[in-house]
């Protein structure tokens, strides 16, 4: 049986048109309250997948949920763990040191200003150096794809894409499918060369 591998979302550059609906859907899905109109979006859109547009390729890039996640292995406060076959950042534990951003070879982690219900989350004691007043600094934490772990319908990006360019990759199933396919093809033609 072996171990169960972490699945991840991957985009198909042949289908992606670069509309960024996935990014908007991602940001909407990670709000605690349900938002419908743009006018209700009171904080910046901070997606966890990022559209890449270069001359011949257009596609979003997001976390691969690495089995030996470098981000988790470099984290000084053990804020990144595997939960339910997903590599998850614990935002409460994260101290914003950005080591994981440097460690990730895909560029899948961003530093995101922290908000709760549309209001900035301020730090307890860290203030801005100012003579006349105490201004608490807004918290900023590492942010990356969590495969919409709290969403019953699965990843919002997959659902929102108008071109069905995003899909959930279960590599073990894909491996089995390809194994079966090659066996079928070989079986059908083997009599021609195994005389």
């Amino acid at each position: 049986m072996g171990i169960q591998l972490n699945s991840f979302v991957l985009a198909d550059p042949k289908k992606c048109i670069g509309c960024k609906v996935c990014e908007v859907a991602c940001a909407v899905a990670h709000r605690s309250e349900e938002l419908k109109t743009v006018g209700n979006m009171d904080v910046p859109i901070m997606p966890r997948l990022y559209l890449v547009r270069i001359a011949d390729v257009t596609m979003p890039i997001q976390c691969r949920h690495c089995e030996d996640a470098p981000c988790a292995n470099i984290c000084p406060v053990s804020a990144i763990t595997q939960i339910d076959n997903k590599i998850i950042i614990n935002e409460e534990k994260c101290i914003g040191c950005k080591s994981c951003m440097i460690a990730c070879p895909f560029g899948a982690i961003e530093l995101a200003a922290a908000y709760k219900e549309g209001r900035p989350i301020l730090q307890n004691l860290l203030t801005l150096n100012s003579e006349d007043e105490f201004i608490h600094k807004q918290s900023a934490v590492a942010s990356k794809c969590d495969l919409c772990i709290d969403r019953s319908n699965g990843p919002a990006c997959i659902e929102a894409c108008p071109r069905q360019a995003l899909s959930y990759e279960n590599v073990k199933m894909e491996k089995k499918r390809r194994n079966a396919e090659i066996v079928s093809k070989t079986g059908a033609t083997i009599k021609n060369f195994m005389v």
Binding site: L10, P13, V52
Partner: peptide, 26 residues
């Protein structure tokens, strides 16, 4: 530095995926 670093990594990841013929079957 971070912006450049993230962009470079994302671009090379996208390029590798686009180049690989078998990564997508559907």
């Amino acid at each position: 530095f971070i912006r450049r670093n993230l962009n470079q990594k994302r671009i090379s990841s996208a390029q590798e995926i686009a180049k690989c013929r078998y990564i997508r079957n559907s």
